[in-house]
């Protein structure tokens, strides 16, 4: 059979794709611990708080947001993979409250093993999402590599007053999560033929949904603290946010938005390896949740929703607006912020 006649299933090229391919956060932290932290008065967000992107103040009107993200395939279809990878990379700009401006393609592709049409479809998916976001792909870099990988480097902007970081949570803030959890579980289930097609499509659909509306709501309601929930799972990102803000996050696992059937999958043992890795990363957590709920919180999300810390008086109205928009209709209040106690995250 000729190469271009083969039906390419990208999933056959990877053991774990999407954000679950991330290097262990614990390992990364150890590796980078010796590096000096750069200090510059205009560098408003640096690596020290493990935030979603760097933020650099250009003038009193504009903060530049700078970020990148790429990963190997997490679904079979090239175009969908391109859409999801781009949505995920753009998300970091949204998590800082900004709007994406320009992007560069970061592409690795094995031309000897796959027809180039596959590459074209991956990049097309990315192009369409960046266009939908109102930004431009202005170039990129492509090298030979197997399995394929795709993502973007993105710059975005935000007004200094609207900059959202993960270090601004204050006691009594209400936690809102804008997308259901469980995509890592559904992708793992797909690989072992346990995933319902409808739920798989639901997961793909939400991963290629931009966090643009959620970001616009943060600007409207002057939300100061948020992060996007990706490879380290809700627990991992909540932990980093709590640590950066020096508060404790109390998460009520019973009110988490979750994709259909995911709890049943977890209970039947369909737990991706990345969830265990994330669980080991977060040392400072107390939990009275069931094991399945705990693992749901550890599930690596690709292109997950925003976790916002919202002043309590604004929370209900913001939630109502989020739920009224199709992109963020599953948004839920999932807990609250308190003064720092003996742990950074408390699950109940």
């Amino acid at each position: 059979m000729l190469l271009h006649e083969m039906k390419i299933d990208l999933l056959n090229s990877v053991d774990f794709g999407g954000c679950s391919a991330k290097l262990s956060p614990k390992l990364l932290e150890e590796l980078l611990s010796d590096f000096p932290t750069l200090k510059n008065e205009n560098l408003l967000v640096d690596v020290s708080t493990h935030d979603d992107a760097a933020a650099y103040k250009i003038n009193d009107e504009t903060v530049l947001i700078f970020t990148t993200d790429f990963f190997p395939p997490l679904c079979s279809d090239p175009y969908t993979f391109g859409q999801i990878a781009a949505t995920n990379a753009l998300s970091d700009v949204y998590a800082m409250g900004g709007k994406p401006l320009m992007a560069l393609n970061l592409t690795m592709f094995p031309t000897a093993k796959m027809p180039v049409e596959v590459l074209k479809n991956i990049v097309k998916g990315g192009y369409d999402k960046v266009t939908e976001a109102g930004a431009m792909i202005v170039g990129g870099h492509t090298i030979e590599d197997y399995p394929p990988k795709y993502g973007l480097a993105v710059v975005g902007t935000v007004h200094p007053d609207n900059l959202v970081t993960n270090a601004n949570a204050v006691p009594n803030d209400v936690l809102i999560l804008t997308k259901p959890l469980g995509v890592g579980v559904v992708m793992a289930a797909k690989k072992v033929d346990m995933a319902d097609d409808k739920i798989y499509d639901l997961a793909l659909n939400q991963m290629s949904t931009l966090n643009a509306f959620a970001a616009s709501m943060m600007r409207k309601y002057h939300v100061k603290c948020a992060t996007d929930v990706t490879g380290f799972g809700l627990l991992g990102h909540a932990y980093e946010l709590a640590k950066a803000s020096d508060v404790t996050l109390h998460i009520n696992t019973k009110s988490l938005p979750v994709l259909p059937n995911v709890i049943q999958l977890l209970e039947s043992g369909c737990i991706p390896g990345a969830a265990f890795r994330n669980k080991n990363y977060v040392e400072s957590v107390s939990s009275t949740a069931t094991f399945s709920e705990l693992m749901l919180c550890c599930d690596a999300q690709t292109s997950g929703g925003l976790l916002m810390c919202v002043p309590s008086e604004k929370a209900q109205q913001l939630l109502a607006e989020l739920q009224a928009c199709p992109d963020t209709r599953n948004s839920s209040i999932i807990g609250k912020v308190s003064e720092k106690n003996n742990v950074f995250v408390s699950l109940s």
Binding site: A188, G269, C270
Partner: peptide, 13 residues
């Protein structure tokens, strides 16, 4: 067995 099959099979048994 590929991940997460070992856990699934254990739980099933």
């Amino acid at each position: 067995l590929p991940c997460p099959k070992p856990i699934i099979e254990t739980k099933k048994r």
